[in-house]
Each structure stands twice: as C-alpha cells, then as structure tokens.
Design a protein around this nucleic acid. Sequence first.
DNA 1: TACTAACCTGTACG
DNA 2: ACGTACAGGTTAG
Length: 286
Amino acid sequence: MKPLLFENFSQQINLQDTINSGQVFLWEKNGKKWYGINGNDVLAIDQNTRKITSFSENPADIFRNDDNLKKILENISQDKIVESAIQRFPGLRLLRQDPFQCYISFIVSSNSNIQKIKLMLKKLCKKFGRKVRFDGKEFFLFPEPKQLANAQTKDLLSCGLGYRAKSVKNASRDVVSEKIDFEFLKNADYDTTKKTLLKVYGIGDKVADCIMLFSLEKLVAFPLDRWMLRVLQKYYSKKFQSLGKTLTEKKYSMLHEEIINYFGPYAGYSQQFLFKMEREINKKKW
DNA sequence: TACTAACCTGTACG
DNA sequence: ACGTACAGGTTAG
C-alpha cells in the first residue's frame, strides 16, 4: 500500500462523512447547505464552496483548523488499520463542539442510538431553546444550562428523555452552580477532567471520554463504546490484554491506558476514523 | 471488587 | 396488527 500524502488535507473536508460519524447530532442538510446548531450559534456550510456563514459574529473554529492535521494523520497512520480507515474516509474530521451542548448530548446518548439521540436533542432545542432566524430560516438554539436546570420533569419527559431526564437536570444544575466549569476543564489534564466529569450523575467512562474528546480539547480521550469494543476485538485482539467480555469500571481504565500507550497522544482521532469505518462496514444508519 | 438487572423509548423484525 | 428483540451506557443492588 502506498503511503498517504497529507500535504493538502486541509482542503478536503468531507462534510457528509464528518457530520455522519456519531460526534454531532443537530446537523441537517437543506438544499445545498448543511445547517448545524452549536450552542448559541447556527452554522451554515455550502457543500460545494465550503463557505461558512454563521448566526453569531464570531463562530467557533469547529473544524479544528488550528490542529496540525498533517502531523496528526501521519502520527496515527503508523497503525495500519487506522491508515486504511483514513484512506477510506480522508475527509473525516474531528469537530470542536460547544461544551454544554456536547455534555448534554452525550448524557442523553447513554443507552440510546443515534437516530433517537437526534430526535431527543431536537425536541429539547424546540422546547427550551431560543428561536432565531438565520439565512431566511427558523432555528432553535441549544438551551442554556439554567433553562434545563429549572425545567419541569414532565417537559423533559415530553422530549423523549425517559430516565435520562433526571441526569440532564442534575448535570445542568452542576453547570449552573459551577461545579462543572468548562473553561477550567479545557485547561486541566485528562485525569483531572475525567475525575470531575465522573462525579456528575449520568456520566460514566464512555460519556466522559466523548465530552472530553469532542469539546474539551482532550485528543487523547478514546471513548470505548460497544462499537469500539467490536473494532478492538476484530482487529486488535492480540494487542490488548484488558480486552474482556464485559467492561467494568476498572477494565475500562486499564484498557484505556493500554490504548493510549499504543495509539499515542492523538488516540481520539484514531478512534473517530475507526468508529466511522466500522459503522459503515456494518451499514449502520446515521 | 465483580457481575447483573433495571432503566425509557423508538424502531425493526417475526 | 401484535408482541418481542434490539439498541445503547450508567447506576444500584
């Protein structure tokens, strides 16, 4: 297999693949543009010109243009499976999300599936988010922490959250009370951040790793869900000692440690490519 | 400490 | 149409 050329990668973002890779849930295609909710902002991206416009004056750099992508891809493609995933989905990118939206999104994701997560979050925005007009269309921004913290349980339940309603409410309260401070956590190290997130009701190992990878600048975070376990068993069964049938808390951290040692400081990027590849192989819906 | 059942809901399958 | 299986991670026992 000939080596990949990473020189022009920044030009080759594939929106469809990036949005449909289990990291974001509030993006929809309308005509020739993709529209996405990112916290208090709405982003529009033309699929052909890739021109980005936004509801706010200063949109966040959601595509992580400040990452040294060439260096990262070269680093993670030392692993041959990851390299083949990159070859299949060269336009896949890791996104930088609004932390509160990401936090609630993955709390809601627990014991659910992508289709349902999208539905629940959409209803949450419609019920609790501010309605705005942008690009001649109507959008609902992601709710503020205090709106969810003060929400009536019955209203949360009407969004289809089920038993997750309690988690969403408690987690939002922890943000309002500043027990959870995203700006602090962005600058804290992996272990501190993880420990802090794990105290929140409704957040376990996997959800914490998703929040850290997708919104808190922890590129080493490698969320282990059932798809990644499948990937590890399929391609890496001899590589990792901690691979067992069940993932207890202890097993999770042992395995995560082994994974970081193997995949390196950009393990989270590797995870995103592997996840995308395996879901596509199994023809899963987004 | 390790394992398991229960959790709420939407979708797919027979 | 109707039940039953499945999708999923966290918590509590």
